[in-house]
């Protein structure tokens, strides 16, 4: 049995924003795959606003070369969406690996971001696509880069009165792009390691490299120094070895030495080797 709470179902974005503004300490629910579990564990949320059916949050649009993804779109939809597969292959792959078919049919991209798990599969792909979150309240509207929204594991800078409306991403075309992950089982498992990559090469040189690593540090991150090192560099084993050394060093710098690293870092090294060699 769930704790008692009152719920309202928003039919439009306007309605959601006005409830967010008027209700005291509101909580947004979409797919419910995180919130319902927490409520069942005894967490009290007295007022819940269901935004899963808000049409504005279920659409995808393309403007000025940026792709805007509605926050209530499910992982199942994103993993099979043609524009996502074409413009953000790593995101489609990651969304297709989240939880189980049922979780993917329920859980949303907005929920995955608002939950801000260090192991969230959607976050590394969104980082390499320079994702920007559109946060709205009744009075304000701000656009914040994903890196700035997640401030600690499971903690974001999204205000209680704000609605995550959409996520804007930079399409990447002409890149070798993908998402690799390691988990205890092939499906229905939390990622122990996730790597999103997008690499462009020309005549034996890396012309652009974007990498994001999840489940290794408190928040998924982009090893920007490694990207800078590789950009424009001749593709050879020496530079790949150096790039991986730098990436592993950066992880240890962020998190210190963790017991899991005895396993994770050698596996990450292997994944990065495969990804960079291509």
């Amino acid at each position: 049995m769930l704790p008692k709470f009152a719920s309202v179902i928003a039919k439009t974005r306007e309605e959601a924003l006005s409830w967010l503004s008027s209700l005291e300490n509101p909580r947004i629910i979409a797919g419910g795959t995180d919130l319902m579990v927490r409520m069942r564990a005894g967490k009290q949320y007295s007022r819940v606003i269901d935004v899963a059916g808000v049409p504005e949050l279920l659409t995808m649009t393309e403007t000025d070369g940026r792709l805007s993804v509605g926050s209530a779109m499910t992982h199942a939809r994103l993993s099979t969406s043609e524009p996502i597969i074409r413009n953000a292959r790593s995101l489609a792959m990651a969304c297709g690996l989240v939880g189980s078919p049922q979780i993917r049919n329920m859980g949303t991209i907005g929920g995955n971001l608002a939950n801000a798990s260090p192991a969230a599969d959607s976050i590394p792909p969104l980082l390499i696509h320079d994702a920007v979150l559109v946060l709205e309240s009744k009075e304000t509207r701000r656009r914040v880069p994903l890196e700035e929204v997640i401030v600690a594991p499971y903690v974001t800078s999204i205000d209680r009165k704000e609605l995550l409306g959409s996520v804007e991403i930079n399409p990447l075309r002409g890149y070798r792009e993908g998402y690799r992950r390691v988990a205890k089982r092939a499906t229905w498992a939390i990622s122990r390691l996730g790597v999103a990559f997008a690499i462009r090469e020309d005549k034996g040189r890396f012309t652009d490299v974007k990498l994001a690593i999840g489940s290794c540090t408190p928040m998924p991150f982009r090893p920007k120094k490694v990207e800078d090192l590789l950009k424009g560099a001749e593709k050879n084993e020496a530079i790949i070895t150096e790039a991986i050394r730098m990436a592993l060093e950066e992880i240890k710098l962020i998190s210190g030495i963790r017991p899991s690293y005895a396993y994770k870092l050698p596996v990450l090294k292997g994944i990065l080797e495969e990804v960079l060699r291509g």
Partner: peptide, 28 residues
């Protein structure tokens, strides 16, 4: 009761969902 076992599965518009994590009001 937390969306891990699948014995509460129902089809919502022909797609599997965990009914234990679905608010009844969402069936409307």
């Amino acid at each position: 009761g937390i969306g891990e076992c699948g014995t509460c599965t129902v089809l919502v518009d022909d797609e599997p969902h965990y009914s234990c994590l679905t608010l009844a009001s969402k069936a409307n």
